Computed example of a mutant assay.
Amino acid sequence: MDAVNSEADKDSGAETSAQKMQKVLQCFSVLERSLSVSEIAERTGMPRSTAHRWCVSLREIGFLDQDHTRDEYRLGLSLLQLGNTVLSSMDLQKQQRPIVESLTQASQEGVHLGVFDGISMVFVSHTPGGPLVRNNSTTLVESSPCYCTSVGKAALAFQPAPVVQRIIDMGLVAYTRNTITDPDKLREELRIIRERGYALNNGEFEPHTRCIGAPIRNASGKVIAAISVTGTSKRLPDSRVKNIAPLVVQHADALSIQLGYRIRGVAS
C-alpha cells in the first residue's frame, strides 16, 4: 500500500493514511452496502483516482470485496474476522451473559445487547422471549439502524451532536409508518431519552414490535452499547412498559458497573 500512502499524503498533509482508509471504510453502512468508486470519492472528498487506488489496496488485503460486475465494492470478510476477534476480547462480551439472561428471566421477553459502532448497532447477544423463554443467550453479529431501534436510540441519545448529525445526513429511511424521519423530531426524541433514561421503539423498525432500551457506559462514562427488552405490541402494553423499563435500566447500569463505570450514589 506504499503507493497509496504516498499519494494520500500528497492529497492532504493534515490526514494520515490511516485516516484516509477509515474514511473509505466508513462510507459503507447497513443502508449502503455496495458503493461505486465515484460514490466513495464523493463521500470521502477524494479525487476519483485516489479513491480507486484505495479500493484496490483494501480489496487486496480483504477489507473490501468487489462484485462480479466489478462496478461496486462492499466490506470484505477480513473485517468480519477482525470484528469477531474484537467482540470476543471485549470486556462487555465477557460480562454480558449473566446480565442478559437475568433480564430475560425478569421480563419474560426477548433481550438484545448491541454495541454502537459509530453508525449502526451491532448486536452481539440475544435471548428469545415469550411463553417459551429460555435461560440461555446466543452470540451473534448482526446490525441495525441506530435511529429507529430502542438500543440504537438509547446509544445515540448520548453521543456528541456531530455523531447525531452524521446519522441524520446519511438519511432517515422509513422502515415502517412509525419510523421517525424528521431530523428535528429525532433530536427531540433523543432529548426525551436522555431525561427519561431509556428509549422506546414503537414499531419503528418492524411493525407490531415494541422494545425498551437503556444505555451501557464504559469506565470513562462513554455510552458504547445498549440493552433492550423486545416483545410484541400486545405483550408490551403501556402498563408493562412502566414495570419493565426500570428493570432494563437496572441491568444496563449493572453492566456499566462491571465495565468500570462508577454511578453516583452507588458504592464501588
Rank of each mutant, 00 (worst) to 15 (best):
S89W: 07
M46Q: 11
R48Y: 07
Y73N: 05
T44I: 03
Q95E: 15
R43A: 14
G83N: 10
L58G: 00
V86N: 08
S49G: 05
G83E: 12
T50R: 07
L77A: 13
P47S: 08
Q96D: 10
A51T: 04
M90A: 15
Q66F: 01
L79Y: 08
S88T: 09
L64P: 03
Y73Q: 04
S57N: 03
L64F: 01
E60S: 06
L64R: 01
I61V: 14
A51Y: 03
H52W: 07
Q93E: 11
A51R: 04
G62Y: 03
M46G: 02
V56C: 01
T69Q: 05
N84C: 11
F63W: 14
G76N: 08
N84E: 14
G45T: 12
I61T: 09
S89H: 13
A51W: 03
R48C: 07
R97Y: 11
H52M: 09
S78Q: 12
P47W: 02
L87V: 14
Q81R: 12
L77Y: 10
K94M: 09
H68I: 09
D91C: 08
R48V: 15
T69A: 04
T44M: 00
R48W: 06
Q96C: 15
C55I: 04
E60L: 06
Q66Y: 07
R70L: 12
S88P: 03
L58W: 02
K94C: 07
C55K: 00
S88H: 10
S78M: 13
I61G: 06
R70N: 13
R53N: 11
Q96R: 13
Q66C: 14
R74K: 14
R53L: 11
Q81L: 09
K94R: 14
Q95C: 12
Q95M: 13
L79Q: 09
L64W: 00
